[in-house]
């Protein structure tokens, strides 16, 4: 009798060990699989700053669309407490050009509600931005990312790319490509600071 019991016990231990061995190998292998797929999906997104992330702070020179602002710099963290629409654009980009009048149109209304519009141009020369700003009579701050540092930090690929950042500096929405007037207004409403 004893022998049978011993054999049974041995079998039990063997079975358990086998289960542990197989489970741990499967966990490791499927873990690696999951890692590969997730990393691949993240890599495809390209832009490094995503919804839910804290917007990276930066400072850039303002372009002279306003004599007071001439040659002053603007730092993103100075705008904390306000909702910020951060638009990356260039004068040679047609869709960017199309959405500029919409931004200008909605700016006064949302500025009153605590939303700031900041347009970062990736143009090479300040002259073309100046002329563009004059032409469209833009009143919101336009910044010049001459050395593409902010472009690189934000991992911007297509132009325009627009971030909508809430009063706490967290990215609420990221839009790749052109915005219509309706969609723009919808997003702006999302980042109006809540009254506390």
């Amino acid at each position: 009798m004893k022998k049978i019991e011993q054999a049974k016990q041995k079998k039990q231990i063997k079975k358990r060990n086998r289960f542990i061995f197989r489970s741990s190998i499967l966990v490791v292998l499927f873990g690696a699989l999951l890692f590969a797929v997730v990393s691949n999906l993240i890599a495809e997104e390209e832009a490094t700053l995503d919804i839910g992330d804290k917007a990276k702070d930066f400072q850039l020179k303002r372009v002279a669309n306003n004599e007071d602002a001439k040659k002053s710099t603007l730092q993103l963290s100075d705008l904390e407490g306000k909702g910020v629409m951060l638009n990356f654009w260039a004068t040679y980009c047609e869709p960017c050009e199309r959405e500029m009048p919409y931004m200008e149109k909605l700016y006064p209304k949302y500025q009153e509600q605590g939303v700031e519009i900041v347009a970062v141009s990736v143009d090479a020369t300040e002259l073309v931005i100046d002329k563009f700003v004059d032409h469209y009579d833009l009143s919101f701050p336009v910044l010049h990312d001459k050395d593409s540092q902010v472009l690189d930090a934000y991992g911007i690929r297509p132009l325009p790319t627009t971030y909508f950042i809430d009063e706490n500096g967290v990215v609420v929405e990221r839009v790749l490509g052109e915005l219509s007037l309706e969609r723009l207004e919808g997003y702006l409403q999302q980042i109006v600071p809540k009254e506390t």
Binding site: L29, F30, A32, L33, V37, N40, L41
Partner: peptide, 21 residues
């Protein structure tokens, strides 16, 4: 670069590993 192609290759890896053991 599609997720399913990656999964396929990973499954081949898993299969090779388990078959070997």
């Amino acid at each position: 670069n599609s997720w399913w192609y990656m999964v396929l290759i990973a499954l081949i890896g898993i299969s090779i590993f388990i078959v070997s053991i």
